[in-house]
């Protein structure tokens, strides 16, 4: 969990181009400053690349928090 949180933080910092971003399991992805649907696409693509997982449309629509994201990655690996 901690390791994944670290990797995710790095991805989020890159994509948002903001080194100040810190994540917790409760962080709502859409509420991060600067979020828009294009950033969301980049995030999901980066997550799929980084962890070697694939999501279908329904799964992507359902993911709301960082905690859910980590759980979904762990479920797939």
């Amino acid at each position: 969990m901690d390791e994944k949180m670290k990797q995710l933080t790095e991805i989020f910092q890159d994509v948002f181009d903001n080194e100040g971003i810190t994540l917790t399991a409760d962080t709502k992805i859409k509420e991060i400053k600067g979020w828009d649907s294009f950033i969301h696409i980049s995030l999901m693509a980066a997550v799929q690349d980084e962890f070697g997982v694939a999501y279908n449309i329904e799964e992507i629509m359902k993911l709301k928090t960082v905690g859910e994201l980590i759980a979904s990655i762990e479920g797939k690996q």
Partner: peptide, 11 residues
């Protein structure tokens, strides 16, 4: 591509 997509803003 990983770098280009992820770090496009800083690039």
């Amino acid at each position: 591509t990983k770098m280009l997509l992820r770090k496009k803003k800083s690039i």
